[in-house]
Amino acid sequence: MSLLRAVARRVAAGLVVLWAAATAAYLALLAAPGNTVDSIVGDGADTPQIRAQIVTEWGLDRPPVVQYLDYLWRLAGGDLGRSYLLQRPVAEVIGEQLAPTATLAVAAAGLGVLLAVVVAVGTTGRRRRWPRRVSSAAELLLVSTPPFLIGIVLLSVLSFRYGLFPVAGDQGPAALVLPTLTLALPIAGLLAQVLRDGLDRALDEPFVLTARARGVRERAVLLRHALRHALLPTVTLAGWLFGVLLGGAVVVEQVFGRPGLGQVTLSAVTSKDMPVVLAVVTLSAAVYVLVNTAADLTCLLVDPRLRRS
């Protein structure tokens, strides 16, 4: 019951965030220099008649408030509008490019979490001093290096020198390896640090002493008791990290010359293709809200104490 109410509250908050993101993007683009009609005309024929026709066709003569409300109404109905530049429905344009980006983001998130858990569980505890120092140093290095630099280093070593992976493009799983690693390594570094810190703290708690006093194996103490406690802060952080993963994907797609939302966004912003930019912003906000809601609910599932209020 209380769980249900918690879900409802979080979904409602998510909708507010979505509305705020869409509105902020709308206002930002409205305030940006340049004329909407210019963007629609682009490089095509430019006469006063064509311009007048565009204004009536896109409804640009209506007051800004009405245009804004119309945009919101259509957004609520799932209509993202038409691209000024490509003269096609935005949903179609994004839909084509969504799959490669989503594949990359999900693969990177999965790999990042997996690496973090393996490294943190493997290096926690006070007996393993050296592995811990080495992994701490590696994590720090990965977290403090910009992802595109990691990508370039990976490219120049593994692709250019040894030719293990394709340099660019999106042909098969081999082409996915380097971009995924590029995005996953910093995530893994940060998560591993937080997770190990949580494990260390949990292992010092009195309930771990009780568990050990029951004759439980050390591995079970770690996985059954300590890991759950350490996961709580990690899940929250992971939710945030995955939310910004989309932004990271845009850069990495450029480095590796991959198709995806990155390319679409870049060209839409430079040519002021308002419907596409708005759609991308709303989509990232939606993903962010979705992932963070999922993270909050995971915390609720893991920690019974949070379910009370």
């Binding site: 309930f207 006093a213 759950r228 019974p304």
Partner: peptide
């Protein structure tokens, strides 16, 4: 542990796993 010798520690709020 647990089989030959059992240990009861103080403050059960933190000595039982809250999760």
């Amino acid at each position: 542990r647990g089989r030959l010798a059992g240990l009861v520690v103080q403050d059960a709020l933190v000595s039982l796993d809250p999760l």
